[in-house]
């Protein structure tokens, strides 16, 4: 199997116990990345779809799809933050031959990325309340 999903697990054959441990390490390797992926993805989702849906909201005369979008993307952000936090807590308990600093750094960056994305979503969401969805669309 290529290294992509395991991101650091070595690919040599293993016995049963080794396999279990390797699977755990695979998850260990994956969770801190969730913050890196979920934060930016949530923000991109909120911004991209939110931007595209404005004319439609104006026709529709309601904001509820937009609220829903905000809830979903905030949730996605939270998932990333939770995974990163989890990895951060665990980074103290990593076996010493694996780089503990590496896991810690990745988790920390993931967590902060999620925080930044959440801030972005909050500011975008908050600022748009001053505006009617139809402002600037009067043809």
């Amino acid at each position: 199997m290529p290294d992509i999903f395991h991101l650091g697990r070595d690919t040599s054959p293993k016995d049963g116990r080794e396999k279990v441990r390797a699977a755990q390490e695979g998850r260990e390797a994956l969770t801190p990345w969730l913050g890196w992926v979920c934060g930016p993805a949530a923000w991109a989702l909120h911004q991209g779809i939110g931007y595209a849906m404005v004319p439609w909201l104006c026709d529709l005369g309601t904001r509820w799809p937009y609220h829903l979008l905000t809830v979903v993307s905030t949730g996605l952000c939270m998932v990333g933050a939770w995974a990163a936090l989890h990895a951060l807590r665990r980074s103290g308990r990593v076996r010493s031959e694996r780089s503990e600093g590496r896991l810690r750094m990745m988790a920390l960056v993931g967590l902060m990325l999620c925080a930044a994305a959440l801030t972005g979503i909050a500011i975008e969401y908050g600022a748009s309340f001053w505006l009617s969805v139809c402002a600037g669309i009067d043809r």
């Binding site: 600022a127 748009s128 001053w130 402002a135």
Partner: peptide
């Protein structure tokens, strides 16, 4: 920067709505 962003976003939205409105 966060303070600045909030200030820019809110002033921009309010003033933008005003100057571009009918």
């Amino acid at each position: 920067p966060l303070l600045a962003i909030v200030a820019v976003a809110i002033s921009g939205v309010v003033i933008g709505d005003e100057v571009e409105g009918p």
